[in-house]
Design a protein around this nucleic acid. Structure first.
Lengths: 344, 344
DNA sequence: TTTTAGCACTCAAAAAGTTCGAGTGCTAAA
DNA sequence: TTTAGCACTCGAACTTTTTGAGTGCTAAAA
């Protein structure tokens, strides 16, 4: 804080971070002079490291161990990476593309595959938050009669998402009425988001003209029932990957983490927050409000359909994560998903 | 083997198993005389235990530790439990019923909830294998036109399962043709299982009469595309529960287990096998062909719709599992699910 | 002024050594 | 056939010792 970070300090800090990322062991002055050619003696490095420690960028677990980067140091490091946007190798890019394509057209399927993909390519956990149902744009609605009192309502959104709901009706509704209802609704709701659709339906239910037309009243009641869901889905894959991280080797820690992720609501908060801003975002350990996230970081990026940010995806790993490797993966995957969702 | 198991031997074996289940520690002669009133001295118990060891029912980790039951002993124990069918407390039964009801009508949703339920009530892992899609009975099929070249095909099975598939067509098919196609198919396929449907469609594609009717040819081709899935879904819940089991406390073991369950195919084999016979079945540790199952047991029961066994559900836990508690849970849940699926 | 060599010091982790006690098997008496 | 008694075993837990990577400081070299 007090003093400005010198060029040399920066170099050494980077070296510490990189070594620590690679080994998960506190790194000492000796190690650094060997692995990064800095043309400096360990003693000098020690002096600099002491300064860095004072600035709150390094910490020593105990006197006679090496030092480890603090969250603040990671932040600095990550910011410098974000500036110098790296690119993926062509191979990686191809792999990602290929696997996303494979998943087919169903958006949910595709997002799940993306999550799996993020986890395998990063070797941490992959996470994808599906677009809020309410943000989807209405495309079409159909009612299919299954038996005298059971109707299957089908709601198709413009991005290709399909929702079904089985409805039980009091009285039998003839097939041709169902068709008329669908036509009427399709005309009325064209191009609205599902959130708007909902509002519209509720308004409509109050209106005079509907009171006198029991068929329309029914139609509206039915569609209101159909649309009454807004749980946001989260795909979390590759949890087993974090078992390989040495920092979580002990059983108690592991348990804590698994328990934390079992409740997806915590994760949801975090992802929601990263949807506020566009593009790649990074939460490092203590920066996150999620208590149990101690020792973990989250790299996310938003994805869009058209011009609207609709969802967010990313990678969760230890704070000591290969950011340089992970950031481009997340970035590229988000862009790809945006493109794939858009062509629909 | 050699010698027949005496009544007293049986009592003592049971005592060892129960203590071991409760504590996960090797149990010694002393402990047993205290916790189960057998009116025997430790020395006598020791003698009997030595016999049991010779019969391959007990094993000692080392000379100066107590003894632990072998898989063979568990088998014996479990068989005697199975005979003396225990019942659940009314409270537990109510809870299970309540939670299953809550899940609503969608079969997939219900099975997932059942899996979660099995995991929380047993405090091990819950697993449910959904009915093979192919075993479902065809009820109805509809085609909904989304845009000029995109059709949404909807397949409804008699148990209420709905499948959608987006199809792209070369040429535009008018809405009324789609309706005719659906009618034709619905007539033809009524009451067949999806497996039979598939066969029928393939046969039909060859037949003369279809060759000359391009509309029918199209219909059949489309529906064939729709039905072309047969992945069996498995719901596995409560994995975090096994982290609490002391036998899996060390990190390496945990990792192994999580990795094993990540590939659901292994589990699928095992569940498939337990579908061969009806009712509650138990696989104990080494009896299972699944290598990684070392130290784990599986309690399953089949569930039915009508008279046909369609799926299997159960609990996976350590070999040292509270069988007496788990077996009735699994049994009751399977019966309940059968009933709920049936009323549809 | 900055860098480096030298040195005493620290402290966790690994290795080696102790102690403790639950549990065993055997023998001989009840 | 059962039990009391006893010597013996051996892992778990605790202590002690050793080791070595790493540190901070000082004083000499650049």
């Amino acid at each position: 804080m007090e003093e400005q970070l010198s060029e040399r300090g920066k170099r050494i800090l980077e070296a510490v971070i990189e070594d620590y990322i690679a080994t998960a062991e506190p790194v000492g002055s000796r190690t650094i002079t060997r692995s990064h050619e800095l043309a400096l003696s360990p003693a000098t490095v020690r002096n600099v490291m002491a300064d860095l420690e004072e600035m709150g960028l390094l910490a020593s677990p105990h006197t006679s161990a090496g030092r480890i980067p603090t969250d603040k140091a990671y932040r600095l490091y990550v910011n410098s990476i974000l500036e110098a946007k790296q690119n993926l190798t062509a191979g990686k890019r191809d792999e990602i593309r290929r696997r996303c394509r494979m998943a087919g057209k169903d958006p949910a399927e595709m997002l799940k595959e993306a999550s799996r993909l993020l986890s395998t390519t990063s070797s941490y956990m992959g996470v994808v938050m599906a677009p809020r149902m309410a943000a989807n744009v209405f495309h079409q609605m159909e009612f299919v009669k299954l038996s005298s009192h059971r109707i299957l309502a089908i709601l198709v959104s413009q991005n290709g998402t399909v929702q079904n709901r089985l409805l039980e009706t009091e009285e039998e509704i003839p097939q041709e009425d169902l068709v008329r209802m669908a036509n009427y609704l399709n005309g009325m709701l064209q191009g609205l988001t599902l959130a708007q659709v909902r509002e519209r339906l509720l308004a409509e239910m109050q209106s005079e003209k509907v009171r006198y037309d029991s068929l329309m009243a029914k139609a509206i009641a039915l569609s209101e029932q159909t649309i009454r869901t807004d749980s946001t889905e989260i795909f979390l894959e590759g949890q087993a990957n974090i078992l390989d991280q040495p920092e979580f080797a002990d059983a108690a820690k592991m348990r804590e983490i698994f328990r934390a992720f079992e409740k997806k609501s915590l994760l949801l908060d975090l992802l929601d927050r990263s949807m506020q801003a566009e593009g790649v975002q990074i939460f490092i350990g203590s920066e996150s409000p999620l208590l149990k996230m101690e020792g973990m970081s989250l790299v996310t990026s938003t994805y869009l359909t058209g011009k609207d940010t609709v969802g967010v995806l990313g990678v969760i790993g230890p704070t000591r994560m290969g950011y340089g490797r992970v950031i481009p993966i997340v970035d590229y995957t988000a862009k790809l998903i945006s493109r794939l969702l858009d062509t629909e």
